[in-house]
């Protein structure tokens, strides 16, 4: 299960809306609890380095990737995954997404439709290198449930 703190969620949605109709991308940082839930506590917006048409593809450059790893080390957080947007398309990973996906990482997809309807869904590769959905739980609801 993934829990996204409000500020991180707001920043990712803001990035996806601002970048529309191009794809946005970035890193997600956080911690894993004893039940292997992932808590996203911070994000880093990254420039989409795809050359040419960015409405259907995103690329994170190797040097930006190194900055992401360094950011995690500097802030004592885990680099837990990548977010990117699917402008005008559902938040379902494509074959392009699957072929370049890494083990361990969560892949959060933000669907932004033309009517600005927004959906967030997260996916992780299983042992057969197929995506499985990772449930996202609202941070505030989780806080309330623990009280």
């Amino acid at each position: 299960m993934m829990i996204i703190e409000d500020r991180s969620k707001d920043l990712m949605i803001e990035d996806a809306v601002k970048t529309f109709p191009d794809e946005c991308c970035g890193f997600m940082f956080g911690v894993e609890d004893e039940e292997e839930n992932r808590i996203i506590k911070d994000i880093l917006v990254v420039n989409n380095s795809k050359e040419g048409d960015k409405t259907r593809r995103f690329v994170i450059s190797p040097l930006d990737y190194l900055k992401g790893e360094q950011y995690a080390t500097d802030h004592n957080l885990l680099l837990l995954g990548i977010y990117h947007s699917h402008p005008k398309h559902p938040a379902i990973p494509s074959e392009t997404d699957r072929l370049s996906a890494q083990p361990f990482f969560s892949y959060l997809i933000i669907s932004v439709l033309e009517n600005k309807s927004i959906t967030l869904r997260s996916w992780r590769l299983n042992e057969s290198e197929q995506f499985e959905e990772e449930k996202i739980t609202d941070y505030q609801l989780t806080l309330k449930a623990k009280q």
């Binding site: 259907r56 593809r57 690329v59 994170i60 990117h84 494509s94 392009t96 370049s100 890494q102």
Partner: peptide, 11 residues
Amino acid sequence: ISIIPAIAGGI
């Protein structure tokens, strides 16, 4: 030496 996975994707 850094090993860096290529990070990409899209619709």
